[in-house]
Amino acid sequence: MVNGSAAAADGTPGPVVRVPVSLRVNGAERRIEVDTRTSLLDALRDALGLTGTKKGCDQGQCGACTVHLDGKRVLSCLTLAASADGRDVRTIEGLERDDGAPHPMQEAFARHDALQCGYCTPGQIMSAVALIEEGRAGSDDEVREFMSGNLCRCGAYPHIVDAIRDVATGGRRA
């Protein structure tokens, strides 16, 4: 049993409790020590310097913080770093090819102008990559339904759907 040392039991704010966390992030083993309250999102951004993953609402509603955990898309703002110990994390920084070329989904987002301010884009792209792996990009309607966890306040949705369908159909969509 993993055990972080005890906080005050009388209801007063206890002392900070720190725990060691090992993560495999974009293929590299990373070891950090975090406050038990630290989200995976804050650990990625603040402890590991991977600021591509964005903090939008920090309450699980907007999808800007989407990463892949053990291959599944999840919200890093509602994942405790301590609970992710030992797991495999993939972020937007891990998408590029070995030769430094962008991932096809990144290229499609650029080609289709699928963003305005760009703040939600890393989350959109991580969700979009997962959506194709899940086999949920069979129609525009299906893409809309299974991208519903990623909000874009600029309203770039039509071009986001175009970009994803482009990748899903192997570039047969202009």
Binding site: N3, A7, G14, V16, A82
Partner: peptide, 19 residues
């Protein structure tokens, strides 16, 4: 958020005992 101790249980019995 209030600070908290963290334990990761390996078995159901261990989890229930800790809680």
């Amino acid at each position: 958020m209030r600070s908290f101790a963290y334990v990761r249980a390996g078995t159901v019995e261990e989890a229930v005992a800790a809680a």
